[in-house]
């Protein structure tokens, strides 16, 4: 059983085709890195996996359960909201812009959803939250507000907030792209820690170094399709396709 299986995903924004038949299979504990130029559809694809965007056609299964599949007309048909809700709860999401709740303290950001959605006792939720803050190295910031934190710290809080819902799969949408270069390290460190703990992760990223070091599988996307896919060694060190080579040389040159 795959943790996530996406088959032949198509997606249009108005007339613009952003996904043209993308497929992905993620096994338990795997770290998948999706790289590619901006506009390649990689973020859209990730967002489709937990229905932040709806797909036009294709199949998405989460832990063996179908979330959406093609109906008789070949158009994607989603399961009931209840089912979708249940499946989405298995996935945590970390955004490029953190999207912390600015009017809530760090601790309240972490316990809000567990208490409101999962009906966890506030005291227990706080206990869990403190453990998670410890894990991302921000124990002493529990009572601070997001605006008092650096971007790197905010993103680590956002990771802890996603983890507080106890997901099986963590999705990261360019988690370090909004950060100053000197702050990306602390976020990547936390993500590496998760990988070591065997968290299943799908990471859309520009951090080629991170992809190479941590990812079990690297996917290079361009123009709405997967161009190349394989181990970090295959895709990053010995890319076959010329578009991959061109992209990597551009990105690595910028370093």
């Amino acid at each position: 059983m795959y943790m996530v299986q996406a088959l032949d995903i198509y997606k249009k924004f108005d007339e613009l085709e952003v996904l043209k038949g993308v497929s992905l299979q993620v096994e338990k504990g795997q770290v998948i890195a999706i790289i590619g130029p901006s506009g390649s559809g990689k973020s859209t694809f990730l967002r489709c996996l937990n229905r932040l965007e709806t797909i036009d056609s294709g199949t998405i299964e989460i832990e063996g359960e179908i979330m959406v599949q093609n109906g008789p007309g070949g158009k994607a048909v989603y399961r009931s909201e209840d089912t979708i809700f249940r499946l989405r709860q298995k996935m945590g999401m970390v955004f490029q812009n953190f999207n912390l709740f600015p009017h809530k303290s760090v601790l309240d950001n972490l316990i809000l959803a567990p208490v409101m959605v999962n009906k966890v006792e506030p005291a227990r939720a706080k206990e869990t939250a403190r453990v998670l803050l410890e894990k991302v190295g921000l124990s002493e910031k529990a009572n601070n507000f997001p605006f008092e934190l650096s971007g790197g710290q905010q993103q680590r809080v956002a990771i802890a907030r996603a983890l507080a819902m106890n997901p099986d799969i963590m999705c990261f949408d360019e988690p370090t792209s909004a950060l100053d270069p000197e702050l990306t390290g602390e976020v990547l460190q936390v993500m590496k820690g998760l990988a070591v703990e065997n968290m299943t992760m799908i990471v859309v990223t520009h951090e080629i170094g991170f992809a190479r070091e941590v990812a079990d599988q690297v996917i290079f996307m361009d123009d709405g399709i997967i161009i190349e896919q394989g181990s970090a060694e295959d895709v990053i060190v010995n890319p076959q396709h010329e578009r991959t080579i061109a992209f990597l040389s551009k990105v690595l040159m910028a370093r």
């Binding site: 809700f85 989405r88 955004f95 999207n99 912390l100 709740f101 409101m116 907030r161 996603a162 819902m165």
Partner: peptide
């Protein structure tokens, strides 16, 4: 992003 964050958390 605020709506999306709330959405993925299940609110």
């Amino acid at each position: 992003g605020q709506y999306e964050a709330a959405d993925v958390l299940g609110l």
